[in-house]
Amino acid sequence: MIFTLVLACSNSFTQKVTNSNSKVQSTECRVVQHARGESCIPLNPKRIVTLDFNSFATVLALGIKPIATWVTTEIEDDFRYFQSKVDGIEILRSSSGQINLEKLVLLHPDLIIVISHPFFEGVYKYASQIAPTVVLPWIEHRGNWKQHIQDAAKVLERTEMATQIMNDYNRRVQEVKQLLVNKKRSLRISFAYVASGQLVITRKKSFAGGILDDIGLLNPIFEESRDKHLADLLISEELLPKIDSDILFVAPLRKGDRSIIKRLQQKPLWNKLKAVQQEQVYLVDFSVWRGLNILAAHEMLNDLSKYLVRTYA
């Protein structure tokens, strides 16, 4: 995906940036190290703007409400875990892959947060002229959402809150485990999604796979196959019967991918899946099961609790 910055070449834009910077520089600040160097951020930032989806979710989970965030989709409609959480937050929508820097200047942010990802590679240079900008490591940790919470908490001085967040997550993991202990069930679960007309199965290094592994439910099938470092593995139709999970969760990447799932369900090989034979294939929300943030993690745990109770009540 090509990332383009919308830059204003007029003198007025330069003046706005200069004025915005002077306001920030005149306040006391503390130096924080980040993925692109260091920045001196306000001691108590009040006007935080996030420029990526997962930082937005993480900042919200840390109990801080940004004044704005930039997204490329309708988060209120497409992401149920943001329901009621975005009230009062300006959504800088863009379907073209562009950030309007002039609009960002007019928000007068005192801290901008973004992740280190090729998609945002060109952002830091310009964002840092508007306000102190922190680039949280992302590619360095291969998109580790748990580490992202810790990194954001250090910048925002919310480390105790981060510990509480992970304690709450671990408590919920144990609750789901207990559901199975009470039912004396030993299960293996897989999650696959459909993208570009193909079925992709997620493994331990993926978001959903990691959560299933935390609970002890992940089917280790395909974990020892080639490209061990990959979180996802493309599955051909011929390999479908090898998905011998008790339960299979499937998600379409886009609404149009539902037709691909329907076509798969008409294949003779599909009916050989253990989960199909046991009528334990469930369609789930891609934005949740591929969420890469703590809000999505809790929604996924909600799904697991719901379907496990429904299946083994």
Results as ranks from 00 to 15, higher is better:
208 A>V: 03
190 S>N: 15
245 S>F: 05
155 V>S: 05
256 G>A: 09
184 K>R: 15
7 L>G: 08
36 R>K: 15
175 E>R: 12
96 S>D: 15
154 K>D: 06
126 Y>C: 06
56 F>G: 02
146 K>V: 09
49 V>Q: 03
102 E>F: 02
63 G>I: 11
192 A>T: 06
215 I>C: 06
24 V>F: 03
65 K>L: 06
254 R>I: 10
274 K>F: 03
134 V>I: 10
101 L>A: 02
271 N>Y: 11
45 P>E: 06
105 V>K: 04
7 L>W: 01
92 L>S: 04
41 I>L: 03
291 G>T: 05
198 Q>N: 12
240 L>S: 01
50 T>E: 08
162 A>Y: 01
160 E>V: 09
31 V>Q: 15
200 V>N: 10
275 A>Q: 06
169 Y>R: 11
29 C>P: 00
259 S>W: 03
85 K>H: 08
91 I>C: 05
144 N>R: 04
308 L>R: 00
86 V>W: 09
276 V>W: 11
38 E>K: 15
306 K>D: 09
247 I>T: 02
302 N>Q: 08
98 Q>R: 11
303 D>R: 09
291 G>Q: 12
202 T>V: 12
233 L>N: 04
130 I>V: 12
190 S>R: 12
66 P>W: 06
94 S>E: 14
7 L>I: 15
313 A>I: 07
77 D>P: 03
124 Y>D: 04
166 M>R: 11
28 E>R: 02
146 K>E: 10
286 F>T: 01
145 W>P: 03
30 R>E: 15
34 H>P: 05
131 A>H: 07
29 C>I: 01
275 A>D: 04
265 Q>M: 13
193 Y>K: 06
139 I>A: 08
116 S>H: 11
271 N>Q: 14
305 S>C: 01
37 G>L: 08
240 L>A: 01
46 K>M: 12
255 K>L: 08
312 Y>E: 06
38 E>Y: 15
247 I>R: 05
287 S>K: 15
125 K>Q: 15
118 P>F: 11
110 D>L: 04
37 G>W: 11
97 G>V: 04
255 K>S: 13
19 N>V: 05
167 N>T: 12
137 P>T: 02
199 L>F: 10
22 S>E: 15
128 S>M: 00
296 A>P: 07
13 F>T: 03
272 K>R: 10
10 S>E: 14
65 K>A: 08
95 S>N: 04
225 S>C: 06
47 R>P: 02
77 D>F: 09
273 L>N: 03
177 K>R: 14
61 A>I: 07
289 W>N: 05
116 S>V: 01
157 E>P: 00
312 Y>A: 00
28 E>N: 12
293 N>E: 03
266 Q>W: 01
